[in-house]
Write a protein that binds this DNA or RNA. Structure first.
Lengths: 162, 162
DNA sequence: TATGAAAAATACTCTAT
DNA sequence: ATAGAGTATTTTTCATA
């Protein structure tokens, strides 16, 4: 499963446009891609069914929601066994401050992206949500000065047309 | 700027629903929130204008796009001066493998989330896109085993109703 | 500021090529 | 697989409370 899907230039064009604005109408998509609106609908439906499109998410500004401070927490869980790790991840995911949890290779097992109100809030979160737990061996906190999203996600090595 | 916005329970309910599925119709939103569809439209438009809602993004499956391997690259840029750092960030953002770039506190200045086809592709990216550059002093690569998105982003300390 | 109904635009279905 | 016409929904506007 999770096999790579073959995408033609029309699919790629649609995905590029929709990653920029997922609410672009099929008529506008059709105009920009150069096919009929019904074809766009058909392609997008197929991409959804193929699992390429997972969903439509709202992008919010954490600062406007009173979460102006973001940080990455590197967490070492010891011992690193399934019985401890499963509940740990679920507990961290359930914290309202958590945005994303990564399970990584290397000495720091988990990286948790969090959004908090201010430094006092971050301190409270690290102490109460992380270091106070017996399975958490070490937490390293790095603040996020700034964050940039990059270009659209596309397949590697775009078909060179010679 | 980036001041926190006052959100009432209707706004919060709408944001929770839309974070789950950003294509929920105003009619469905109205049914679930208990206000008229036109009110939902009005609220959402206002949240957009207030900068709370930044956009509607398509969530894609990197594996289905032939990018089954993801990694986090910790990058030290030396010397850490504006003249070097600005172009560095722009160059990294322009790489098709890059997903997000973080500027962080701590010894590793930047963290770059990348999606590649396989290990050979990652090696090529690290060598050609990072370590070959004179401003890049050090790169540490950590692979992502798994990644979990967390609950909806909401304001801190939801109004306790005693 | 919220509403409900009218108007405009869009999504979606279906048939033919 | 694509397009075009037709139907059902939805979005959006607007007068009113």
């Amino acid at each position: 499963m999770a096999d790579s899907v073959v995408l033609d230039p029309v699919d790629l064009h649609l995905l590029r446009l929709l990653q920029n604005d997922a609410r672009t109408t099929y008529r506008d998509l059709a105009d920009q891609v150069g096919v009929a609106p019904s074809t766009c609908l058909d392609r997008v439906t197929r991409l959804r069914r193929a699992g390429v499109i997972l969903g439509h998410r709202l992008e919010l500004d954490p600062a406007r929601l009173g979460r102006g401070l973001q940080a990455l927490l590197s967490v070492q869980v010891r011992p690193h066994r399934r019985e401890l790790v499963g509940p740990f991840v679920e507990r961290i995911r359930a914290l309202p401050e958590s945005r994303t949890v990564f399970h990584l290779t290397g000495p720091d097992d988990y990286l948790v992206h969090v959004a908090v109100a201010d430094m006092a809030d971050l301190q409270r979160l690290v102490l109460d949500g992380f270091t106070s737990r017996p399975e958490v061996a070490r937490v390293e906190t790095r603040l996020i000065f700034q964050q940039w999203d990059c270009g659209p996600l596309l397949p590697p090595s775009p078909p060179a047309t010679p």
